[in-house]
Each structure stands twice: as C-alpha cells, then as structure tokens.
Design a binder for these strands. Sequence first.
DNA 1: CCGACCTGTTAAAATACGTTAAGTCTGTTT
DNA 2: AAACAGACTTAACGTATTTTAACAGGTCGG
Lengths: 228, 228
Amino acid sequence: MKKVNILLAEDDPNLGQLLKNYLNAREFETTLITDGAQAMKVFRKEKFNICLLDVMMPELDGFALAKGIREIDSNIPIIFLTAKNLKQDVIEGFKSGADDYLTKPFSMEELIYRIEAILRRTSARPQDARAEVYTIGKFTFDVTKQLLVYQDQTRKLTTKESELLELLCRHRNEVLERNFALKSIWIDDNYFNARSMDVYITKLRKYLSKDESVEILNIHGKGYKLLC
Amino acid sequence: MKKVNILLAEDDPNLGQLLKNYLNAREFETTLITDGAQAMKVFRKEKFNICLLDVMMPELDGFALAKGIREIDSNIPIIFLTAKNLKQDVIEGFKSGADDYLTKPFSMEELIYRIEAILRRTSARPQDARAEVYTIGKFTFDVTKQLLVYQDQTRKLTTKESELLELLCRHRNEVLERNFALKSIWIDDNYFNARSMDVYITKLRKYLSKDESVEILNIHGKGYKLLC
DNA sequence: CCGACCTGTTAAAATACGTTAAGTCTGTTT
DNA sequence: AAACAGACTTAACGTATTTTAACAGGTCGG
C-alpha cells in the first residue's frame, strides 16, 4: 500500500526531527523542511498528500506559505502547528485557513488522530476503517471499542488504559520508552505524569495477570516491554 | 447541479481569500467583497442564497449592511463573523439580526456545518439537495427530515438532537471533540452548554439503545465516538 | 552496602461525565 | 390574555476517570 506523503515545515530542529521520526514510524513518509521559503520550493517539485506547517518560521511564515501552497493545489489539506501565546487575531487567520489546527504542546497521538481524520474526510485514502484488534496471549484487545476480552469476560477499559495498552501492543516484545509514551499520551513528560503512568501500568498488570504468559516488564531507566 | 451562491463580506484580504478558496473547493460559489458599501452594491445586482458578513468593516459595518440587505430581501440567511472580544451588548445586537453568528477563531468545518444547517432549516438551498441519510446499525437517520427510523418505529428528533447526531455520524468511529461540537452547534463552548450537551448525549444514547451494536463512547477529556 | 534515584501499590482528592427532574423560554391555542 | 405544549437549559446529585499524595520496595553506581 502506498504511503501518505507529508510535508512537514517546522523550524525547531528538535521538534521537527521528533515529529518526523514519529510519523515515519507509523504509516507515513515525511519530508522535513526547516524554513518556509525552502518548503515552498520543495512543494513545487514533489507531490504531497498533506501539509503540517509551523506558524512561526524564518523567511516565510506559515500563513504566507499556506497561501502559496493553496495557489498550486487549492484542495490539499493543511494543518497548522501554533504556539499557545499567539494573539487571538493572528490565530483567527490561521484557524480559518486550515483544515485543522493544533496548539502546542500537543500529543503525538492527537496529531496522528487528526491527520487520519482529515485523510478519511477528504478520502485521499482508502476507506477501510480497519478494526484495530490485538491478540495478547489469551486476551483480545479491541482498540476502537476499548475492550479487553479474556475467554467470556469482557472488561471495558478507560481511555488512558486503552491508549497505554495500545502503545505497548504496538511495541510488543520491544522497549516502549517512558518519555515516548508520556509524550504520546500525556503530552508532557513531567514528574506527575510519570507517576500517573506508573499507576496505569499497575492497573494493566492487574488486568493482564490472568494469563501467566503475558507480562509487562520494566526496563530500568528506559521504559516497559510487553512480553507475549 | 446548481451551486449555492454566497456573498462574503470580509475586509481582511488574507482571511477573505482563504475563506473564499475553501468554500469554492466545496459545493459553494463565493463572491468576496472587502468593504460594506461595495457589498451593498453587489447585493443589489446579483442573486445570493446566503450572506457571511464580518462585523468590523470600513465604510459600512456588518450590522448596517445587514439592515440594508434585509430591506431588499427580508428572508435571506445571514451569518455574522465576530471577534471574540466584542462587548456582550454588541454581540446581542448581532445575534438578534442574524440567523446565526460565528465567533472568531472558527475552523472551516464549523463554518461549513453552520452554513449547511441554515440552508437545511430555511431550505434556501437550490432544490436538488441530496438526501442526507445515514445508516447507524439497524437505524436510519434522515438528517434533513430529522427522523430516526428503527424497523417500523419512527421518532421525530428535535433540532439539537438531530444536529448532534449528524456531527456524530460525520465523525463516526473517530473522536468528535467536545469543543468542536459545542462551537458548531451551541456556538459558545462554555460550562452550561457543555452540561446541556451531556443531556443530549444521554437522550441519543437512550434512542439508540435498541440496537446493541451501536454505542456512543466517551473519550475522557476529549469527546465522543459513535461506534457502529 | 549506602544513598540517590527509579518504580510499585494503594488510597484520597480533583475533575469529568451521566442522569433525572425542575425551570425557562417561545410560540400556539382557546 | 391565560393556559398549554414543545424544546432547550439549569440544577442537583450520582458515578467514573484521572491525578496527586504517601509510603514501600528495588536498582545501581560509587
């Protein structure tokens, strides 16, 4: 299946690289550009399915860039990434010009939700609405319905439980890094969110304890590994 | 198929052009005018189905413009675009003169939803209006007629019930964000409207409970997901 | 093998959501 | 105009989810 091409214009190299890695780890192909003028050039040459544009950029800001992009392709979905402390009237312009709009800081998961939602709506991608279901030992985990099934017992998971278990499943039998999980789900990897995550690990361990062959292993100083 | 004609009066040329592009990319035909006096002239000459008027404009403000427009066509739907930091009493004035109003910043999706809602209500849309009908499990939901049908039972939905269910349907199997729904339907995403929305979710859940396979799932802190 | 840091567990506090009923508003009937 | 009906909002109370706190163990480098 052909990958979705994303043009990512973000001048902060750290954030940009993080986003790119994250997106590429999923089913996307990301081109990272760190200034607006350059992004415009690249957009002329290559074919993209969606644009993620930071608002504050040197040379050419996100708003002007969007105008330029829309002159070439008036339908391409655009998502703006903006700082929280922007003035209201500036935000207006961006929000109205975009298919969607994210205020920093945002979680990676949220970004991906929004990209997928837009792709679904503009049907720039097959409508398959795949049922996301994982098998964890003797358990079955339905991500969209947030259900964990063991034999005849069904447990409704809460949103956070489900999000964390999904990440563990996606990285099963390899290390899910703490910071990665925190940024994905809690947005901020601060002390309190880390403690909160501990609590959820405990809960998930309790739920999964019915099957001896399944285990959430702690990798000291790094993260967790779901063995199954 | 005949397109819906929109008169867009917006003095900020950037925002205006973006809105125009967006609306034209959908099923609309938009005429953009950047000052109120000019808009009045154009309105006399051409036939429009709906007006989007910015409140703050040079020459002739949106309120005065609306009065003039209503003298010519007392029924044409008018949506005001207002800044959030406007005084409450000013807002009241616009509210009474308009079919609807949007507080900046708004997303394109919100705007389009409101335009379509108004066209539906006033049936000012050129006659061919595709029958918007959703299938929700064993239910059939006719958006235009506001009817929810289950086998031989037909339930008339109220306007708010219908609008909320439509948004859920448009985002089915993905998250419909609370704030988005509130701004789209209730205009303001304040505490009380949020409580009101809760009440409507309860009602819809009751109506839909006849089919076990259909569910409105709450995504804590984010919104709702219609599973079907 | 000690002290700093990281993790595990449980319970309390804070926040978000669910439900039912009473109140308000609007338009219509008599 | 008073009474009524329908739709929507507000209030009040209950439950669910998430975060914070408090304390108990573990791990690792010096």
